[in-house]
């Protein structure tokens, strides 16, 4: 694991940002910790645990769901307002021992290339609130995952999801619960626009276009060559589109 030299549990956002802003100290925010605490290597660091910042609430403002970054995947799954697609994808992030601790903010921050939930949030055009030295900034998830916006010295405080519409996903994996080789999530919003996002076809989960599959350059691994992943993206995207017809279910 990361060699952790000091553990902090600030009780205010300002204190947490201050701990992260120290120029001479490598400090990382800690959500559930299930990724960081299992990382190999011996990188010296300090951790700033966000559990006492009051970021674990789910609220709703009209058609927008605001999910605190420290909401665990379990609480996200069990919440009545969570869209079914995102609930199903959150369930696939890991078994209960992980879902009980891992947080939505942590999933977004790490942006695991194989995270179906991140793909789902991309399809939902999720917006991420990030607190930094200059205040809170709202960033479209696409920009964050795409690397346009860094997180150093800042804290994800919440994720906003526009409710409504309909979503579904398709995946191909070695076994039913295995991390998919390719997963395609789709969301058709109330204005009938359709967004598709996929894992397994780029270095991070990405938005894809049904007619842009051939342009994808998936990184191959032992579970799937680039050609195969491209093929899967096409097949799965077509299935998702077929299940989300324009104008709603036939």
């Amino acid at each position: 694991m990361v060699t952790i030299r000091a553990y902090h549990r600030p009780t205010t956002l300002a204190a947490a940002l201050e701990l992260l802003a120290r120029p001479d100290v490598e400090a990382i925010p800690l959500g559930g910790g299930t990724e960081i605490n299992g990382l190999p290597g011996r990188v010296p660091s300090e951790v700033v645990d966000l559990q006492a910042l009051g970021l674990a609430d789910i609220s709703r403002d009209g058609a927008t769901l605001d999910v605190g970054s420290m909401v665990t995947l379990r609480d996200f799954i069990e919440h009545e307002w969570t869209p079914p697609l995102l609930r199903d994808l959150a369930r696939r992030e890991g078994p209960n021992t992980i879902r009980n601790v891992a947080t939505l903010g942590g999933v977004v921050a790490t942006a695991d290339p194989e995270s179906g939930l991140v793909a789902g949030l991309l399809a939902y055009s999720a917006v991420v609130s990030i607190a930094g030295a200059s205040g809170i900034e709202n960033v479209v998830l696409t920009d964050l995952v795409g690397g346009g916006k860094g997180l150093v010295g800042s804290i994800i405080t919440s994720v906003q999801i526009a409710l409504g519409g309909d979503g579904t996903f398709e995946a191909t994996a070695r076994t039913p619960a295995d991390t998919p080789i390719v997963l395609v999530a789709g969301h058709r919003s109330d204005d009938d626009s359709l967004l598709l996002a996929a894992t397994g076809v780029a270095a991070t989960p990405v938005l894809i276009e049904p007619d842009g599959i051939e342009d994808l350059r998936p990184p191959p691994d032992f579970r799937g060559s680039a050609d195969y992943r491209r093929h899967l993206a096409g097949v799965l995207a077509a299935r998702v589109v077929g299940r989300l017809p324009e104008g709603g279910p036939a």
Partner: peptide
């Protein structure tokens, strides 16, 4: 929870 990936401090 998996206590092998949870810090005691947490």
């Amino acid at each position: 929870v998996s206590s092998d990936v949870m810090l005691a401090a947490q």
